[in-house]
């Protein structure tokens, strides 16, 4: 352990200020924080809450039902980030659909799904576009590429989400935010400055052990004064202006829409959908999809977990009916989900 890591550790373990609730918004942060054991270093008066930043976790049940419909009723090949495959829908997950003969393929990038469409002109390829500001540009790039090349067998099923209105919905749930570094790499830090002006504190954090440790130290050091603060602890990646080319592309291809978040309900203008010019790449329009409303399992408290209203272990099915092998809710599926992390890392 080098000196700086030790210094950061000392700041954290010796913190004796007012009680603090810190929310890590990003699922990758949740995952890494558990992996490096950062929670174990926190003093008793500092609580770390996992926020709604795992795209798999906030994706509503109905989205899985829509994907299963495309796969089973329309015979589409579903391409997706791997984590979504085991998320339960109303009747089945995509893994369940696969067992019924649906074609479901994990991909690394939406651009790989485009390539699959090029190589297989007789197959209808649908990419499940989930994710936040970090991931949305890659989906837009896929739609833009498909349009440019006139690919007729590629489309997106969108459930992309944006953070700003989610922060508003989360108001009061934490004293400081650990902002999602890779979202800010795209959007820049303007939103963080605005939140600071409204009295909301936070730091932009990176993802390695030393980055997370220092970000936590910066929060605790700044919290002592009681004044709202914002620090960019990830300037090697996050610039104030973000990534203008990505912002421009997203503005060209997609537009804001109301969006349903698992457990949080519909948050106005918190989602992104393809613009009308890209209608032929919108799977809902292309396949004239009927309105599909999912029915989540009523015993599951993923919604409360995502808002920091309860700990995963407060949920009745946690660790009993709901485990990573047999998940009831999405938060138990993804490695980034709070329930999965609590379960895997043996938190009570």
């Amino acid at each position: 352990m080098n000196e700086k890591i030790k210094a950061a550790r000392d700041i954290i373990t010796n913190y004796s200020g007012r009680p603090l609730r810190i929310m890590e918004v990003c699922g990758t942060h949740t995952h890494e924080i558990f992996k490096i054991g950062l929670r174990k270093l926190l003093p008793e008066n500092v609580e770390l809450i996992s926020g709604p930043g795992c795209p798999v976790c906030v994706t509503p049940v109905g989205f899985i039902d829509e994907a299963c419909w495309l796969a089973l009723e329309k015979g589409c090949v579903i391409t997706t980030f791997g984590d979504l495959i085991r998320v339960p829908g109303t009747e089945m997950s995509l893994a369940g659909a696969r067992a019924k003969g649906a074609q479901v393929r994990p991909v690394y990038s939406p651009m790989d799904a485009v390539e699959m469409a090029r190589q297989n002109p007789d197959e209808q390829i649908v990419f499940l576009a989930v994710g936040f500001e970090t991931t949305t540009p890659s989906a837009c790039l896929a739609a833009e590429t498909a349009k440019k090349e006139g690919l007729e067998n590629f489309s997106l099923l969108t459930a992309n989400k944006t953070m700003p209105n989610a922060y508003a919905a989360l108001e009061g749930s934490a004293d400081a935010f650990l902002y999602p570094g890779h979202v800010n790499a795209i959007t820049g830090t303007g939103i963080c400055e605005e939140l600071k002006a409204k009295g909301v504190s936070g730091v932009v954090a990176g993802f390695t052990a030393s980055e997370l440790l220092t970000a936590m130290a910066v929060i605790l050091k700044n919290a002592e004064s009681g004044e709202p603060f914002f620090v960019n602890c990830y300037p090697r990646v996050v610039k104030a202006e973000g990534n203008p080319a990505a912002q421009k592309l997203v503005a060209k291809v997609m537009e804001p829409c109301d969006s349903e978040w698992r457990g949080l309900g519909v948050i106005p203008m918190s989602g992104m959908k393809l613009k009308d010019e890209y209608a032929e790449y919108d799977a809902r329009k292309k396949y004239a999809m009927p309105k599909i409303t999912g029915k989540p399992n009523p015993a599951c408290r993923c919604g409360d977990v995502l808002q920091g209203k309860c700990k995963p272990s407060d949920c009745k099915v946690f660790g009993r009916g709901c485990t990573p092998e047999h998940p009831v809710g999405a938060c138990m599926v993804s490695d980034e989900g709070a329930c999965s992390a609590y379960y895997q890392y043996g938190m009570e």
Binding site: K4, I5, P110, H182, V237
Partner: peptide, 28 residues
Amino acid sequence: VMVHAGVAIAKITQSDEDETVDIMENLI
């Protein structure tokens, strides 16, 4: 670069170690 889902999303400058050192020096 920082890569996410098959797309380079940011040009990056230094190692996380160097940056951590800078931030801690400012903090202490």
